[in-house]
Design a protein around this nucleic acid. Structure first.
Lengths: 211, 211
DNA sequence: TAAGGTATGTTAATTATAGCACTATCCAAA
DNA sequence: TTTGGATAGTGCTATAATTAACATACCTTA
């Protein structure tokens, strides 16, 4: 298996497949097929097979896939074999929502530290984690060997926040601030922009007739 | 102007361009170029021009683009000329975060109603909007002619929630529940899955070497 | 008024992605 | 043991999207 380039769309779908397989597994189903997966997540069976083919052969021809096995394989592919230490910066409403979001923990993302700049928030506890002042970010993140940072601060301080995170040694950042951030190429960065999502909707609702 | 198909990636970028232009405009800058925009948002100049070319000619050759004009045009393209009425279903932590998110209001998305199933939450006020019982969703959404629904409910009730929204007449849905939803083709649906975003990060951090 | 510089709009080429059709393989039943 | 049915894996085709190159048009200045 060489490292040919994998489309990001494939990775996103793999993540959805694995979630689907978790559900299927809970129902006690042992075996499934590319067709069933496709139905379950709304893509074509060929797409499912193609996505999996990037990484190896996980099924049995004429039979299908073992649900538990395939799920396990995909989790491995996505790097979800072990827990990930995550730090959260910014405890506004969004940060609060993220800190209590169960979906992270379920998938192996463990928030190990939380930071904020507001003195009023420092010292408060969220899910048993104390909110620390931003000044301690570098030390604590280094101590924990935290690899992922979530940025939920106002846009105006987002860049300096990611700079601090990078200095502290994180290798991946999930950014919720609506700004374009500059990071060195070795840092993985993803942006979740809530307004952008709504705007794609309005464009489509207009039936592309508004302009 | 014919309706040739526009890539979704283009729409997402347009949204980012418009945000960038808003910033540039605030600085009092009158004129810009595809190169400057490209630098500002991290894409290639050719990409900027190509994206705009789908919708017409907004610049002056040899000169560039008038910042205010171009911004206005893109806003129109995205359907942001007028306010949109948005309803929010689910007032957990995430729903709360979304309801107070300033970025929506700034871009013309006005939350006009909020619903929840939990009796304890009903009657409370969020940003001057009373949380109503889910039973009133259809009536109220119809009254307001609300076109966009935001789903921030648990995954287990997400499908029935979108069914109610569609029955009430919304034409676009932004879903935060980590499930695959079934909607008729005329309904615009976008999913924001927070865990999926983290998993794309971990895959890339693993350098695609984990498997 | 003409020429040079510059940045757009557009066409062409390259690359990436998805879809399809075919082949190989396995299981079950006769 | 053989045959039929079913489904994964794969190479090819078609489509889409990005990048690059070019031609057009505009402003400025001499």
């Amino acid at each position: 298996m060489k490292t040919l380039k994998i489309p990001e769309a494939t990775i996103i779908r793999l993540s959805v497949y694995s979630r689907h397989l978790t559900d299927v597994d809970r129902k006690g189903i042992i075996t499934t097929s590319s067709g069933e997966i496709a139905d379950g997540v709304g893509v074509s069976p060929a797409q499912v097979r193609k996505d999996l083919a990037y990484f190896g052969e996980f099924g049995t021809r004429g039979v299908g896939y073992n649900v538990k096995d395939l799920r396990q394989h995909i989790m491995r592919i996505l790097g979800l074999g072990v827990d990930w230490s995550v730090t959260l910066v910014g405890v506004g409403n969004l940060g609060l929502a993220l800190s209590t979001y169960k979906g992270f923990r379920d998938r192996g993302f463990v928030i190990t530290s939380i930071f904020d700049a507001d003195p009023k928030k420092i010292g408060t506890k969220i899910e048993n984690i104390e909110v620390l002042p931003i000044e301690q970010l570098e030390t604590v993140v280094k101590q924990n060997s935290t690899q992922i940072g979530i940025v939920a601060v106002p846009a105006s301080v987002a860049q300096e926040t990611v700079d601090k995170l990078i200095k502290a040694g994180v290798s991946a950042i999930l950014n919720f601030a609506p700004v374009v951030l500059n990071v060195p190429p070795e840092i993985e960065l993803r942006n979740v922009d809530l307004a952008v999502n709504l705007e794609v909707l309005t464009f489509n609702v207009c039936g592309q007739r508004c302009y």
